[in-house]
Design a protein around this nucleic acid. Sequence first.
DNA 1: ATAAATTTGTGCGTATGTATC
DNA 2: GGATACATACGCACAAATTTA
Lengths: 354, 354
Amino acid sequence: MEPKYRSLADALRRDIATGRFRDGDALATEAALRERFGVSRQTVRQAIALLEEDGLVVRRQGSGTYVSHGPRRRTGAMHVGVITTYITDYIFPSIVRGIEGVLSGENCVMSLSATYNRTDRERELLTRMLDASVDGLIVEGTKTALENPNIGLYERLRERNIPVVFINGYYDSLSNPVCVVMDDEGGGRMAAQTLLERGHRYIGGVFKADDMQGVKRHQGCVSALSACPGARCEALWFTTETRGDLWRMPDGQAFLRRAQAMSGVVCYNDEVALGLLESLRGLGLRVPGSLSIVSFDNSAYAGVCHPGLTTLAHPKDAFGREAAERLLSLMAGHGAQSLVMPWTLVERESVAPC
Amino acid sequence: MEPKYRSLADALRRDIATGRFRDGDALATEAALRERFGVSRQTVRQAIALLEEDGLVVRRQGSGTYVSHGPRRRTGAMHVGVITTYITDYIFPSIVRGIEGVLSGENCVMSLSATYNRTDRERELLTRMLDASVDGLIVEGTKTALENPNIGLYERLRERNIPVVFINGYYDSLSNPVCVVMDDEGGGRMAAQTLLERGHRYIGGVFKADDMQGVKRHQGCVSALSACPGARCEALWFTTETRGDLWRMPDGQAFLRRAQAMSGVVCYNDEVALGLLESLRGLGLRVPGSLSIVSFDNSAYAGVCHPGLTTLAHPKDAFGREAAERLLSLMAGHGAQSLVMPWTLVERESVAPC
DNA sequence: ATAAATTTGTGCGTATGTATC
DNA sequence: GGATACATACGCACAAATTTA
């Protein structure tokens, strides 16, 4: 059972979060709150003390208690937290660089951490960031296709007026999150279309099952194929635990056996494409001779491996900048719109006509 | 007239300041203090709340109130700042990953930022970190071969008891810094030796002039060559502004002309080696046919380019971990020793017998 | 300008809950 | 289980600062 003064504090936080108070407006007096909530004045004072600690209100003797969600920080540097799946791998360094480029131009300190795709780590990191009293957060949602156990924490962030910008994936159960995401469904269509246009009809897909991106890319794929008579699609789903390695995916071996009959595969990302290339090499299937491959992200791998991957390019740096700019706008008290960014096809050698 | 709870708090502060309490000793109980000072228990609690805010004591329900002076962590997460030359390029992601691996195991938030090799940015970042009240710093020194204009800031950090661990390079003018660095002079010797052993005698070197690493690697090189009769060395110095691009280095063109007479070159790092490879290709010189190349760091480039670079491997991840562990030890109030780590030769194709 | 009313700050007493030893 | 120590909660009284009449 939560103590009364905490419940009261939370109730007041929600009140403030509604935005009904403009900066500097007076909160109800201690006596009024005592009436309204049917608690003693001491309890009211304890609750308000919590809000004061968080810098949500200022008390002035003889005058009243005032909400102060304007200039959170007096003079010092702003503190922005960034939570992504990885920090140093894949396309994440580029995204981080974009964010850093914008933040370092302002008076901002950037705290970085990685969830490694685990919601328990997400929870821990969010708690730490709250502890470290960040002024804003950029978060890549973890396992966004599943129910998230940390929604409560995100709601608490809202109550505390700490703005959050989601990147790549967000949580459906949060109302009106500010996001910067890729057009994953459109990307799925684009990838499938790329193969269809070159005459491929029996197409496989390898998608991540536990995040929104995988599900949407698959949807896009299916919608493009369903518009084309005679086209077939066969999806292989994997989860975080088996990333990139087809042999360890459930049904991975069955998929690879049937791959001989397919003429093209859409891969969730370049990492999966590399794993697939490796597996196909073992089976004596050549790319793009026997099988064409399209993947997502245009990571550093894509240009280096043989054959070079035809892949949809993630804007990485620009993407990071967009997210950071939106967060700055939110922290400054101005609003921000969500953004859906388009993919660009980068053609290399992994796709050939059927 | 000062309120009672403040006087009481001050009295307790003085008590604690005498040093009569060892770390972890129990303070008198609330009831005892009530007796001793003749005030109500509420007043005692108010006083202790002030001490708790300052981190002087910790209250444990059912147990007691304990003094916790010394470099004790306050409630909530520790905040560690990391300042490196780059974040997302070259070997830095791996170093950062090592640091993050250690810090995320503790209750730490890591703030990352990059100087891009500019001391004015170093100054700005240090100021911001101080503003954000970090509890410790990991810093890669900027232009460590030159006089540093920010020494004053580092001294202020010391006064504030904020521990700093330097990585890769440090400042000579700071007394007894805790460092984790590579054995750059030994590395220089090792690189030169690698060429000498394969019969090379006329050897060039391309070194960065404005940091300690470049100067020491050159020294090592010279010392190895001077022990070998008939060996000659010719150094080309560059600065941050011209990184990697030999054509833009002063005397770069003259060096490339003479390169035809050389049989081996020691490069400051893989990036320089790539630039050199590019330049030599333009001149029609083949590696390792006409010229052998040894470089430093074993970055991702080294294994990918053609020919693969023979290079001294920087331990990156382990290096980052060592630095982070030392910082944690310092923050916990235990001391820490500096560490000089050795290089390991990774042989690829860029070196051949003369 | 002054007095009264309002609002937060300080201080005490008491009772009960809950964690620790 | 019992004793101890901190946590929560309520009630009251007065002080100090500010606003209002």
